[in-house]
Design a protein around this nucleic acid. Structure first.
Lengths: 350, 350
DNA sequence: TTGCTGAACTGAAGCGCTTCACTAACGCGC
DNA sequence: GCGCGTTAGTGAAGCGCTTCAGTTCAGCAA
């Protein structure tokens, strides 16, 4: 009978790949000469099988190319132990988080499902897909949806939002103390003698309102209310370019610009460099995120580093924590950022 | 005697979100006064229910906040109608593809599952996860795995690889005619009078070997064998920076550089610009990918545009095609790229 | 001997869905 | 009246797994 199986395997499994009945636990059990139950135990790493049997079963599974069927497991368990992650694949900052999310979830025995929002696929749809896959926890990276909608999600899953504050909701939030990051930046610039510090903001992008408020507060704290100036922008290179062009068209440049994020800062720098405005000689620039580009030796951007690993780790831990312990209260966890001084800031020109 | 917590609870779905039994088809059926079977039919958009009943059932589902359980459906159907996509979230080029993948798959009635590879999570693992979720089709974006492994995958699912040629395997491949793109670039530079054209290659990154070969061939075709020079690199900004520094350290610059991709080109440009080497006055630069950054008005990079939409669309269509029609032969589909001439190329300096 | 324990293992129910085989009711041609 | 086709609907089996509630048996104390 081994022969039968082997022959069927060999002959039939060539081309029409997908439609072949894949081996099930029952097949493994038969081959190993044990019950399905025992195979199940073994694949769940539970006690109750002798080492010898365990090896035999694993060997049989391997021979057959057996793979556990998550759908069936999920159904049978009633629990999916799955975290769904909403991500905007074009935001490199979010991409930085997901490596840690995977690692952390796996360590806790949870699966991770990714769902991307994109121009052709709105956030709503991406989130519904996760729910449909029975994700018990939702980790939403920089979600743009209305608060009301996010609130309703909390009825269907444990929700953790990264990078956005959501007061008065049943969701956990994990974010950077943007206010502190901005304050550090302003302090740094002021120490270097800057007074005319312009902020190019990020419009409605995640984190932007907080950063804008922090800029206003920090300027006031330094008695620089008269020099406050916010240029409306976005978290994109284009916004930085537009802002730089606006500034260049004027009589006199400010001595420093606080960009909404690194991408915006890079747009600014590009325009200035090409216009032979020296950075930081003529103008200092500070970014936000410490993205990969900022670290490049020739860009060498002074920027605010968010603790991506910490954000991701805590997001996962909060989600799992609330799944395993129902009566935890939702938290708003704030991680301090850290100003990374590089080459784009220097003494104010006199 | 009700405290706050109990009060919150009695709104039924407040705090202990995840553990609530979610409504099933049976609940919907009961509420609508029909059989489970009929509800199932309705949710699959199959005929057999009167419009009136259909409305009533949908209303009941809505009232209960019912959501279909994909795991159960998958199990029952035996087919998942799901495509698994392997993506490296840090490659923006891949991110560009996934919007189209979602749209195209959805139009054909397929689900999409994303699995990311990351420094902490190797490709292998990412692919196994997809298989475990019973993906029938695997769309691998720029996979780095060994051919032998990819070959074995073809036994377990319909495999489509994007951006890499895999001759003699049962997998579909969809890729850009890199040779053509490079040839166009070289032709363009030669027309502008360039002869000393250096290529900074992409090492083992996807597409790189083809591009390197194409560069060699194109140079020979123009009788420029003597000027052939390949600087080993990668598809990163750092590689461009390193290459630029190498060149600057020499007596005499070439008149043009063909970068392995846009990121590399941007690294090159950054160094040159800061060294007051004028682009394109002193040196012309060509990239590859037409990434977002290339299009920025101030970067304005001459580059080769890959048809991301076409790549993604065909990848999905091949996968689905082979799923629905078992005896289709695997294809190697090659899409022509398109040189986008922008501001970083000009006449060779004399 | 009996009774008990723990380790190793099994049988069967059931997770939420789809689908096959079937029924009831109705209209229609003759 | 009959047969027949259609539409609207139902019941039950079963997808691959987990898990509850056992069963079997070796070892051991009394």
């Amino acid at each position: 009978m081994l022969d039968d199986r082997a022959a069927a395997h060999d002959g039939a499994e060539r081309l029409p790949a997908a439609l072949h009945r894949r081996p099930t636990m029952a097949d493994v059990a038969t081959r190993a000469g044990v019950s399905r139950t025992l195979v199940s135990l073994i694949f769940s790493n539970k006690p109750g099988a002798s080492d010898e049997t365990r090896d035999r079963v694993l060997q049989a599974a391997d021979d057959l190319g057996y793979r556990l069927d998550r759908a069936a497991r999920m159904l049978a368990r009633g629990r999916s132990r799955t975290l769904g992650v909403l991500i905007d694949v074009h935001q490199t900052f979010q991409a930085d988080l997901i490596g840690t999310v995977y690692a952390e979830a796996e360590a806790a025995g949870y699966e991770v499902l990714l769902s991307a929002s994109a121009p052709t696929r709105d956030e709503h749809k991406a989130i519904e897909a996760l729910l449909s896959h029975r994700c018990e926890g939702l980790i939403l990276l920089g979600p743009l949806s209305e608060v009301a909608y996010l609130r309703t999600l909390a009825d269907r899953a444990v929700v953790t939002v990264v990078g956005r504050a959501l007061p008065h909701t049943a969701v956990d939030t994990v974010r950077t103390a943007d206010a502190k990051g901005i304050r550090q930046s302003v302090d740094h610039l002021v120490e270097l003698g800057h007074r005319e510090i312009v902020h190019v903001d990020g419009g409605a992008d995640p984190g932007s309102p907080e950063r804008r408020r922090a800029y206003l507060a920090a300027m006031r704290r330094h008695d620089l209310s008269d020099h406050i100036r916010v240029i409306p922008g976005q978290h994109t290179e284009d916004a930085g370019i537009a802002a730089a062009n606006t500034l260049l068209a004027e009589d006199r440049l400010p001595t420093a610009v606080l960009a909404g994020n690194d991408r915006c800062a890079i747009g600014l720098m590009d325009v200035f460099t090409r216009a032979h405005v020296d950075v930081p000689g003529d103008i200092s620039i500070v970014g936000y995120d410490d993205s990969h580009l900022a670290q490049l030796s020739r860009i060498d951007l002074t920027t605010v580093r968010q603790d991506t690993e910490g954000l991701a780790r805590h997001a996962v831990q909060f989600a799992i924590g609330r799944l395993e312990n129902d009566d935890l209260d939702p938290q708003d966890f704030v991680i301090d950022p850290h100003l990374v001084v590089r080459g784009t800031t220097g003494p104010a020109r006199s």
